[in-house]
Design a binder for these strands. Structure first.
Length: 160
DNA sequence: GCCAACGTTGGC
DNA sequence: GCCAACGTTGGC
């Protein structure tokens, strides 16, 4: 089956692409997603081997795509932070027996030679329609069309 | 720090 | 089921 393509946002102050690189096996579980649309995308459409544009949000003029990653878990699985009372992602409506929230594992692949800023994404006519450049688009996991993924990679100086 | 846009909650 | 109030995201 053909691979799917995604964009995943993270605030670099909280968890950056470099942080992912420094994780054991360059892999980390993507916890804390508390949005139904994003959860359903993970549950229904994400699969191992899908490719990801790693996007730094809330990062001033650094805001943009900084690297490539891939989905490393076979599928989405329960987010244990959702029933951990000490976690800031705790949700009283979620439990181990009946988990409400899911996560996937994300693995570092490679950095873009030159990061592609949000500004550049907006100026690129070939990327018209990409969700991330839509105003007010807050979804933290977004589907990306293959042609857009390829184009952003190319802009970033990465030959796939 | 501001604030527009958006998702969720809860009263009715 | 509607919608106002609220909290959060994230660009600027």
């Amino acid at each position: 089956m053909a691979r799917n393509y995604w964009l995943m946002k993270s605030e670099p102050d909280a968890f950056s692409f470099e942080d992912l690189k420094n994780c054991p096996n360059k892999t980390e579980h993507w916890d804390g997603i508390r949005n139904y649309q994003a959860r359903n995308l993970m549950r229904d459409d994400m699969k191992k081997g899908d490719w990801v544009l790693f996007y730094h949000s809330n990062a001033g003029k650094e805001t943009g795509v900084v690297g490539l990653a891939e989905i490393a878990s076979k599928e989405a699985y329960p987010d244990h932070t959702s029933w951990d009372k000490k976690s800031k992602y705790y949700d009283e409506k979620s439990s181990k027996e009946n988990p409400r929230w899911l996560m996937v594992d994300v693995k570092y692949k490679r950095p873009l030679k030159c990061p592609v800023t949000l500004q550049q994404l907006k100026e690129e006519t070939a990327l018209e329609g990409m969700l991330v450049i839509k105003r007010g688009q807050r979804l933290s996991i977004q589907p990306v069309e293959k042609q857009h993924f390829d184009h952003v990679s190319e802009m970033g100086g990465v030959k796939l």
